[in-house]
Amino acid sequence: MTIERNGKRYLASPFGTVAWVRNLQAAGEATLTRGRRVERVNARELPLKEAALVLQEDIKGGNPFASYYQVNAESSFEEFERVASKHPVFLLQGAM
């Protein structure tokens, strides 16, 4: 799931550390496709606190996938850190 915040794009895994996450962690780059649109990007996994902030902002902004993370807008930052440790978040950095 892509997240756009403050002019930056992120990719988060609502399903945890699944195969595509492990591949992205190893490769550091990806090809994103949506319909016929194809985009190559570099991706950097965020440290725990940064990932927790991105998830917290996204869920407070009304993310429809919030139930996958088992937190809500009123959850503590520590709960978001717990979630971020199981649901990696990557910063997408421009086309390659």
Rank of each mutant, 00 (worst) to 15 (best):
N42Y: 08
G62Q: 12
E79W: 04
F77T: 00
R37F: 10
K86I: 09
E4Y: 09
N63W: 11
E81S: 03
E78N: 06
E39Q: 13
E29T: 13
T33I: 07
N42M: 13
Y10D: 02
E81V: 04
L55H: 01
K8R: 12
L48N: 09
L46S: 05
M96E: 15
I59M: 00
A51T: 04
Q56Y: 01
F80N: 00
E29R: 15
S85W: 04
E81D: 04
I59T: 02
A51Y: 01
S13E: 04
E74I: 05
S76L: 03
I3R: 03
G35Q: 06
A66T: 09
R5V: 07
L92Y: 00
L46Y: 01
E78C: 09
L32F: 11
G7L: 06
L11G: 02
V41G: 02
M1D: 15
F15S: 12
S13D: 08
V71M: 01
N42I: 11
G61C: 08
G28Q: 07
E50M: 03
T17F: 11
P47W: 06
F15P: 05
A43F: 01
P47G: 13
Q93C: 10
K86P: 07
K49A: 14
G35E: 07
A84G: 01
A26I: 13
R82P: 04
T33L: 10
N23Y: 10
Y68Q: 10
L53I: 14
A26S: 13
A30L: 15
V83P: 03
R5C: 01
A84P: 01
A66P: 06
E74R: 13
G62P: 04
E81L: 06
A84K: 00
Q93D: 12
T17P: 09
A66S: 12
I59Y: 00
V21I: 02
F15W: 13
Y10N: 02
M96F: 11
I59R: 00
D58I: 00
V18W: 15
T17M: 10
A19C: 08
R82K: 15
D58R: 01
K49V: 08
S75I: 01
F65L: 15
G35F: 04
F90S: 03
R82Y: 08
Q25V: 11
F65N: 13
T17Q: 14
N42C: 09
L11N: 02
N6F: 11
S67G: 12
Q25L: 14
G28M: 15
M1G: 10
Y10M: 04
L48V: 13
V54H: 05
G61H: 05
E78K: 06
Y69D: 04
Q93P: 08
L55N: 00
N63H: 15
M96S: 14
T31Q: 08
V41Q: 02
P88I: 06
A12E: 05
W20K: 07
K86D: 04
A27Q: 12
V21N: 01
L24A: 09
L46T: 03
A12T: 14
V54Y: 02
Q70K: 15
S76D: 07
V21C: 02
P64A: 12
G61V: 05
E50T: 06
S75P: 01
E4F: 07
A51G: 15
G7R: 03
T17G: 08
N72V: 02
K49S: 09
P14R: 15
P64F: 13
N23A: 13
I59C: 01
T31P: 04
I59K: 00
T17S: 11
A30M: 12
E57S: 12
